[in-house]
């Protein structure tokens, strides 16, 4: 049966969770990270930093660690720069550590700025990587289908789906055009101006072509009943795998525990 055939099969119980469940878990995690950032030891957001370790573990358990390791790396680099820029370039009263460079000048790390930098950096890291986990573990098609079942209009879902498809197609043809331009001797090396001159003519035929196609696409959609009134059906259907209550319970317990801890620290 085609309905069965079209379903995206996921044997991993976390991977196979319903998109919204994964979304709730992501949201809870991000909120918890923000709460944890307010619990510090000597001014350092140690707990938030430690909670980041959950993400690689979760990603590994979901089976998507490899898939998102590139994103994690690039977010980590940005985070590192945030810490450095904040810690070194924003001056505050207390110098934590002074690095002497060849007896020429000192690079100072300022305590307050470093602490603030760590909060920023780990907020970015925690939220960025958790969202990366979410998208890594959720197929776009599933997510859009889930939203559609929650009342998102067919036009919105069409625009999202076709955007995702078109990016793939355009990425491919951009590369083809670039190599064609190169083969024709159009400069893609050289200085900025030479390169910019190559850039514009490579874009325009690409765009014009897609606009012309759009016109016919409108007629295609209309002919295929896209604007017909009434409920639409869907061959593709994302279904829960049954583990959602457990996953959600764990997420909520984690959040509640951190919330209680936070409140206790205030009260005590």
């Amino acid at each position: 049966m085609w309905q069965e055939k079209l379903r995206i099969k996921k044997s991993n119980p976390i991977h196979g969770l319903y998109p919204f469940t994964k979304m709730w878990i992501t949201l809870l995690y991000c909120i918890c990270a923000m709460i944890l950032s307010t619990i510090t030891i000597d001014g350092y957001p140690v707990y938030m930093m430690a909670s980041f370790l959950i993400i690689p573990v979760l990603a590994a358990a979901t089976g998507v660690l490899k898939k998102i390791s590139g994103v994690i790396k690039s977010i980590a680099i940005i985070s590192l720069f945030i810490v450095l820029i904040q810690g070194i370039l924003i001056k505050s009263d207390l110098i934590l550590y002074s690095l002497n460079v060849f007896n020429l000048f000192n690079i100072n790390f300022y305590t307050d700025s470093l602490q603030y930098g760590l909060v920023l950096a780990f907020s970015v890291l925690n939220m960025g990587c958790m969202v990366a986990w979410f998208f890594g573990a959720t197929d776009n098609k599933e997510l859009i289908n889930a939203f559609e079942k929650r009342g998102m209009g067919p036009k919105a879902s069409y625009v999202l789906l076709s955007t995702l498809q078109m990016i793939g197609v355009l990425q491919k043809s951009a590369k083809t055009i670039m190599s064609a331009q190169q083969a024709r001797g159009v400069e893609t090396e050289g200085n900025v101006f030479v390169r910019s001159k190559a850039f514009i003519p490579s874009m325009i035929p690409l765009i014009l072509g897609s606009i012309t196609n759009t016109e016919e696409r409108v007629l295609t959609l209309e002919s295929k009943g896209f604007l017909v009134k009434g409920e639409k059906t869907r061959l593709f259907d994302v279904k829960p795998n049954g583990k959602e209550p457990i996953a959600l319970t764990i997420g909520i317990l984690y959040a509640v525990a951190i919330l209680i801890w936070r409140i206790l620290l205030w009260v005590l």
Partner: peptide, 30 residues
């Protein structure tokens, strides 16, 4: 070349696209 919905990954789903829009039950679509 442009009579493709642009959102379907298989010819089967492409042919089914109009019926989905018409709201035809899934079993009948198949």
């Amino acid at each position: 070349f442009n009579q493709i919905s642009g959102v379907k990954e298989t010819v089967f789903e492409e042919v089914a696209f109009g019926l989905e829009n018409f709201g035809v039950p899934v079993d009948e679509i198949e």
